[in-house]
Simulated assay, not measured.
Amino acid sequence: MFSFDAALLALDLIGVFFFAVSGSLLAARKRFDVVGSVLLASLVGLGGGVIRDVLINAGPPAVFTNPWYLLPPVLAAGLVFFLFESVQRYTSLLTYFDAGRLALFCMSGALKAINAGLHPVAAVLLGVTTAVGGGVLRDITANEVPQLFDAKDIYALPAFTGAGLTVLVWNLGAFTWATALAIAMLVFAFRILAWRRHWFVPLAVNGWHRQES
Rank of each mutant, 00 (worst) to 15 (best):
H119V: 13
Y96L: 09
K30S: 07
L55P: 01
Y90F: 15
A99E: 06
P67H: 02
D98W: 12
A131M: 13
A77L: 07
E144A: 13
L70A: 14
R89C: 01
R52C: 05
T129S: 15
A156G: 07
T95P: 00
Q147T: 13
V132P: 09
L40K: 03
A62K: 10
F84L: 12
A103H: 12
G133F: 01
G78P: 07
G135W: 06
L102M: 04
V44H: 11
V34H: 10
L75A: 14
A142W: 09
V145I: 10
P120H: 03
V136T: 13
A156M: 13
F149M: 09
L157F: 06
G78K: 03
F81E: 04
N143W: 05
W68I: 09
T141I: 07
G100M: 12
D153E: 13
G109M: 10
L46V: 14
P67L: 13
L39I: 15
S37P: 07
A41S: 12
A123C: 15
R31Q: 15
V63F: 06
P61G: 00
L125W: 11
L83A: 15
P146A: 08
F97D: 04
W68P: 02
A151R: 12
L126N: 02
V128I: 12
T95K: 04
F105Q: 06
F149T: 06
L46S: 04
C106V: 04
L148W: 05
L83Q: 07
L55D: 13
Y155V: 12
L71V: 15
A159T: 03
T130W: 00
A110W: 03
S42N: 01
T95F: 02
F81G: 02
A159M: 08
L46G: 08
W68A: 13
P120E: 08
S92Y: 11
G59V: 09
R31F: 06
L111M: 15
L111S: 08
I51M: 11
L79N: 02
V44R: 12
L43V: 13
S37Q: 10
V121W: 15
G45N: 03
L157M: 13
G48R: 06
D98C: 09
T141P: 00
V34T: 10
G49F: 11
K112M: 14
A77Y: 00
G109C: 15
S108V: 15
R52A: 03
I154G: 03
D53A: 01
P61E: 04
P73Q: 09
L102S: 04
A156N: 04
L70Q: 01
L137P: 07
T91I: 11
G36V: 01
V54H: 01
L75Q: 11
A163W: 04
S92H: 14
T161H: 09
V132G: 07
H119W: 10
Y69R: 05
